[in-house]
């Protein structure tokens, strides 16, 4: 095992996959000699050259469409969209083209595109550089949506994403870029579509997304002082999400809290909550609680007040303990 930061785990995954398969190319703004806005492609330009590390103009709409065409013609592009907020500029490329090309054209094409993008708050970057828009993409048939929270998972999932023949929106968390964690020296991959139980517990299931995994683990320590033992599940893949693991955990704890940094309204929590209610309502001993951001843009100065945290998860867990049917 070795210690590595989340951002360098991303860098290693791209490098290893580019060494393995010469069809893999990296496309994005500042990905060339600057090494990416957050450093994810540092050193790759020197290794792979301008043909494979395609440093593009600031043209998000064109580069996602371009990736669709390149993928349909045999390449395996990784597109870096510098901030998730800028994904709004490439919605046609992603939603109307990339996501639909396989189904709409009668399964004649494979579209192996990975769109990597850092999301989330914590850097005081303000309303247009801090959003978590995963629910938008999880709502689109044809896409897979992945949101890893640790160096181990980000590397293993990115390698799986690059080898997947389906289009994948790969959402990193920019406030986790500096996070250190241990990963194997040897090659490994983490499967798409599988959640990971980060801490086993018996009293309440907490399904957490991205940075909320760490907040949930903090909450677990606080709750332990009150004798409450929560199970923390890292969702990892937002779409298609791992029903089996979550339903299994709910069947054990009979209580469910879902935590994500995106606004609560119409979020991933709503989907999971609805599916649990539809399919295993009889397993629940209390109402499902959701933790998410308030329904406002992310303010520059009040970011701390905006972002969901461990205290809110603690409160939600306690509430579900109190509100037994």
């Amino acid at each position: 095992m070795k210690e590595i930061r989340y951002i360098w785990a991303i860098n290693e995954a791209i490098k290893e996959e580019m060494e393995r398969d010469d069809k893999v190319v990296l496309i994005g703004e500042d990905v060339g000699t600057p090494g990416g806005s957050f450093g994810a492609s540092r050193g790759l330009y020197d290794l792979f050259g301008p043909e494979r590390i395609f440093d593009t103009p600031i043209s998000e709409a064109a580069i996602t469409g371009l990736a669709a065409g390149a993928a349909a013609c045999g390449l395996r592009p990784i597109v870096e969209i510098m901030f998730m907020d800028f994904m709004t500029i490439c919605m046609d490329g992603i939603v109307n083209q990339i996501a639909k090309m396989r189904y709409m054209f009668g399964s004649q094409f494979k579209v192996p595109v990975v769109i990597r993008t850092p999301s989330g708050g914590g850097l005081n970057a303000g309303p247009q550089h801090s959003q978590s828009l995963e629910a938008w993409f999880a709502h689109v048939p044809g896409l897979k949506v992945v949101m890893p929270a640790t160096p181990y998972d980000v590397k293993g999932l990115l390698k799986s994403a690059i080898r997947d023949d389906n289009p994948i929106v790969f959402i990193e968390h920019k406030a986790l870029h500096a996070l250190k964690g241990s990963i194997p020296e040897k090659e490994y991959r983490v499967p798409i579509g599988k959640a990971d139980i980060k801490k086993e517990g018996t009293d309440v299931t907490v399904v957490a997304v991205s940075k909320m995994v760490h907040e949930s683990l903090k909450a677990s320590e606080i709750l332990a002082q009150d004798g409450i033992n929560i199970e923390v599940i890292d969702l990892l893949t937002i779409s298609p999400w791992d029903r089996e693991t979550i339903f299994g955990s709910v069947a054990k704890t009979h209580r469910l809290v879902i935590a994500h940094e995106a606004v609560k309204n119409f979020g991933v929590g709503a989907e999971i909550s609805a599916a649990v209610s539809e399919e295993i309502l009889d397993e629940l001993d209390a109402p499902i609680m959701r933790v998410g951001a308030p329904f406002v843009p992310i303010p520059f100065s009040l970011e701390k007040a905006y972002l969901p945290n461990a205290d809110q998860i603690v409160a939600a867990v306690k509430k579900t303990m109190e509100r037994t049917f």
Binding site: I63, T64, G65, L75, P77, Q97, M101
Partner: peptide, 24 residues
Amino acid sequence: LGANGIVGGGIPIATGAAFASQYK
């Protein structure tokens, strides 16, 4: 590579195809 229901939607796709053939 497909007709396209989005006006201008096919232009970057074609550009990507040209990128792929240049690369190959």
